[in-house]
Simulated assay, not measured.
Amino acid sequence: MIKEARLIENFLDMVKISSPSKNERAMGDYLLKVLKELGLEVSEDNAGEINGGNCGNIIGVLRAPGKKKLLFSAHMDTVVPCEKIVPVIENGVIKSDGTSVLGGDDKGGIAAIIEMLRVIKENNLDHPEIVVVFSMGEEIGLLGSKAFAIESYGIDYGFILDSSGKPGKIITKAPSAARGKITIIGKPAHAGISPESGINALTVAAHAITKIKLGRVDVETTSNIGIVNGGQATNIVMPSVELDYEARSLSNEKLDNLLAETFKIFEDVCKEFGAKLENTVQVEYPGFALNDDEKIVEIVKNACERAEIKSETASSGGGSDTNIYNSKGVPSVNLAVGMTKVHTLEEHIEIKDLVNLSKILVEIIKG
């Protein structure tokens, strides 16, 4: 029932549409048109307005009164560079020309959802009530899903298409994440004439950094300083330094303990040197954990079995809209799309994976 040529054509059309975070308007207009042509009830919410973007979440509903309500979702935005994506097909693999990302993250997921809807329509398949959400701003903090009023739709289960790996991989666990800036404020002084009268913020930061836990803390937990900004000139004792920090863990308790320990170390070292500390780090999104025997996991496993595709459950070190929907009370899993080397110029996806993902979705709505 899956029409491979149509699926690939749609995918190629979409990746050519530039849609960086908060600038998804062209992609949103494309999807509004497609969903209307498929006969869904279509709307756009105010997620763009809330988050300072030019497009909200695109929502489509395929009614089936009295039946289960299933959510299928993927995000519209891509990381940069994505201004002019030129897709290339070689030996069954779709990639970019090397000057940009491909945008399979997450237009591969969108393409599979659209193909599922087309198969339903042209084959007059019996189906549950389907709510489709194409979210904005996922790559910069899950902004669209946070703003989406999922509670008003009465959804029973959510299937989010936004994981790397082969179709059949079911993400049932993902971490909570905290993110923000740690700023150390020292005291400027002339670096050549009176350095001893200043407080070098970088020196303070360096002492603290040698004491905190960074990298792989344990099997469930990570910690990282990704960006460092500070200083004015080489002849000035650095007056302040700003550290962009994040931490993640599959255990909320471990994350809380790590954050408390990290902040205590920075506070103590700042006090020792006479520096001041400003901290904006906070939990950005909650984690989730589903058991392998839960109904939603069984639904996907059974669909994979009918599609003759191997299934497996796994945990992820990254966040997705799945985290938000689970936190809002909708049991949800993140399904692998087949995208590989995402967020790089080497990103690619195999055509057979797009086909297999579409097959799995059709089997999910069948059963």
Rank of each mutant, 00 (worst) to 15 (best):
E83A: 14
S21A: 12
K181V: 14
L142T: 11
H190A: 13
S320I: 08
I185P: 06
I94E: 06
K173Y: 01
A201S: 15
V132I: 15
P331M: 04
G367C: 06
G215H: 14
E261Q: 13
S249R: 07
G48D: 01
A208P: 10
D13S: 04
E83H: 14
Q282G: 15
L255V: 10
L255Y: 10
F263I: 14
K181G: 06
V119M: 04
Y30E: 03
A336L: 00
E253A: 13
K16A: 06
V330F: 02
F11A: 11
V355N: 08
D268V: 12
N356M: 12
G154M: 02
I120V: 08
I236E: 04
K95H: 13
K67F: 09
A47H: 01
N10C: 07
A205P: 05
I17C: 09
K36H: 12
S164P: 02
T222S: 12
V86C: 07
A147H: 02
S18P: 09
K254E: 10
T234C: 05
G329F: 09
E37M: 09
Q232S: 08
K107V: 00
I199R: 14
V362E: 10
G28R: 01
V79E: 04
L357R: 08
N326F: 09
E346T: 06
E41H: 10
L357N: 08
M116V: 08
I360Y: 05
L62A: 15
L70F: 14
N57V: 05
E305P: 00
E267D: 15
I171E: 11
N224S: 08
N326A: 09
K295D: 12
G92C: 07
A191P: 13
K33S: 11
L117A: 10
E90P: 08
K146M: 02
D126M: 11
K166P: 05
I184H: 01
M1E: 13
G109M: 05
G104E: 02
E294F: 00
T313K: 05
E267S: 15
F148E: 04
L290N: 06
Y157C: 10
L70D: 07
Y285N: 11
I360V: 13
L125P: 07
P167I: 09
S358Q: 08
L255D: 13
F72W: 12
I324T: 06
K69E: 09
L32I: 14
S327L: 06
G317D: 12
E139N: 04
E298D: 07
D105F: 00
E4M: 01
E196T: 13
E44D: 03
S251Q: 10
E284Y: 01
V61S: 05
G319Y: 00
S43V: 00
T313M: 05
G329I: 00
V342W: 02
C82H: 07
G186F: 12
K187G: 12
K310G: 14
N200L: 06
G198D: 13
K22E: 05
G317M: 09
D293H: 04
Y325A: 03
K3F: 10
